[in-house]
Write a protein that binds this DNA or RNA. Structure first.
Length: 376
RNA sequence: GCGGGCGCUGAGCACUGGGGAGCUCAGCAGGCUGUAAACCUGCCGCCUCGCGCUGUGGUGGUUCGACUCCACCCGUCCGCA
């Protein structure tokens, strides 16, 4: 995928930097973990520090000192995540700011204007995502139709020729609505196609079923397919297998800040007492700055002491793990061994909760041979 | 020696003449998927896990009823001598 700030190999994962920062990391860290493109957020930056200010300061890339590609989310997700603070009508969304309670009006045109001011490589349409389970079919149909109308308005409003614009497919878990939404959005001259409304509380099987509706309809479509919000390794692999090119998620970074570290054998909660005397690295052989230098015992100590370094080191590790995992997938695709990789990884999925992220706690896994997914 | 404060839980602390295992921290686990998330949830006296048992320093007293009020003692802290 080519952008003004560089080429992005796919399938690819985008770390999330909502407030013009991937929490706890600086751009040098981001390069080191292997990020080639990151996501930032229209809604948050419009409220603070303000998109006009960022434009005056030279645009988002210069502002945050990140010279690689940036995709900006439209604020559509905040329609869901700030559910208590907003009202939707056909023209747009009225938010009560989560920062100061002030009233904020978001329309498709405004979302595009903000993103053009930010100067992201890829802008995204304002949409109305539907949580998979909390919605009736009528509500899904309604939100999806509105998303389509807004998509056309976003296209109409979009001016910058140096900025790509992605449309968003909705349709919930209803196969016919998904299919209709795919046709509607793919029928418009977007540069890429987002698949929204997943990565929520649906099961892995339900998500796969939805993807198996969308992707075949795009079989001859060269545009990138971007599943919004997906982030756990096994979920990513399933979605790549289904034919998705691009992902983003707060999960690896948030989970890291909250003490959970991903390793090939499972997940480690570094706040657990059992790591306090563990001199081994979080992941043997990992190239990240945590594993190169520090022990599990040290990281466990940092978390207990609420030391800021814990967040940086843990985030570096989980993002390295995730991005290397994607690199492994790309290599396997290039080598024609991707189906084997998928089989291998599926075999490792925990039998207790197949819908979980496929990472099992290694306490229950010490006698199981490792399949060994290693990136880099 | 005199005066005063305080005594239950790993620590700190609240409320209370009638139903007390209440809060914060620490501790022990779990969760987190287009970030209102360095956050949230559960547990945190004991057991056989049931709305079960025990528990407010000690001894007396007042009261129908005392963790609560009174007296003395013990411990501890502060002030004065």
């Amino acid at each position: 995928m080519e952008t003004p700030h560089g080429v992005v190999e796919t399938p690819q994962f985008m770390p999330v930097g909502t407030n013009a920062t991937v929490k706890a990391l600086d751009p040098e860290d981001l390069r080191e973990v292997g990020a080639t493109i990151i996501l930032s957020n229209t809604y948050h930056l419009a409220l603070r520090p303000g998109h006009e200010r960022i434009a005056r300061l030279g645009g988002l890339h210069r502002f945050m000192a990140w010279d690689r590609p940036i995709l900006t989310d439209s604020g559509g997700f905040q329609v869901v995540s700030l559910g208590d603070l907003r009202e939707i009508d056909d023209d747009g969304v009225t938010f009560r700011s989560h920062l100061d309670g002030s009233v904020q009006r978001f329309t498709p045109e405004h979302a595009i204007g903000v993103q053009e001011a930010l100067g992201s490589d890829i802008a995204v349409c304002l949409d109305q995502p539907v949580p998979p389970h909390a919605s009736t079919r009528a509500a899904v149909a309604d939100a999806t139709a509105r998303t389509h109308r807004w998509a056309e308005r976003c296209l109409e409003a979009h001016r910058r020729p140096d900025q790509a614009l992605f449309g968003i497919i909705q349709g919930g878990l209803e196969p016919d609505l998904r299919a209709a939404s795919t046709a509607a959005i793919a029928g418009l001259p977007f540069d890429g196609l987002c698949i929204g409304g997943l990565a929520g509380d649906e099961t892995a099987a339900q998500r796969r079923a939805a993807l198996d509706v969308v992707v075949p309809l795009l079989a001859d479509d060269p545009r990138p397919r971007y599943l919004m919000g997906l982030g756990s390794p096994m979920d990513l692999l399933d979605a790549v297998d289904a034919g998705v090119d691009l992902f983003d998620s707060v999960l690896p970074a948030r989970v890291a800040r909250n003490g959970t570290l991903w390793v090939p054998e499972g997940k480690l909660n570094l706040r657990n007492a059992r790591f306090l005397d563990d001199p081994s690295p979080v992941q043997e052989g990992c190239r990240c700055r945590l594993c190169r230098t520090f022990s599990r015992a040290y990281l466990a100590h940092l978390f207990r002491a609420n030391e800021l370094l814990a967040y940086r080191l843990a985030t570096c590790h989980n993002l390295t793990f995730t991005l290397d995992f994607m690199a492994t997938a790309r290599s396997a695709i290039a080598a024609g061994t991707f189906p084997q990789l998928v089989r291998e990884q599926r075999a490792r999925r925990t039998p207790i909760d197949p819908a979980n992220d496929g990472l099992r706690d290694i306490r229950a896994d010490t006698d199981v041979p490792q399949a060994g997914v290693k990136g880099g």
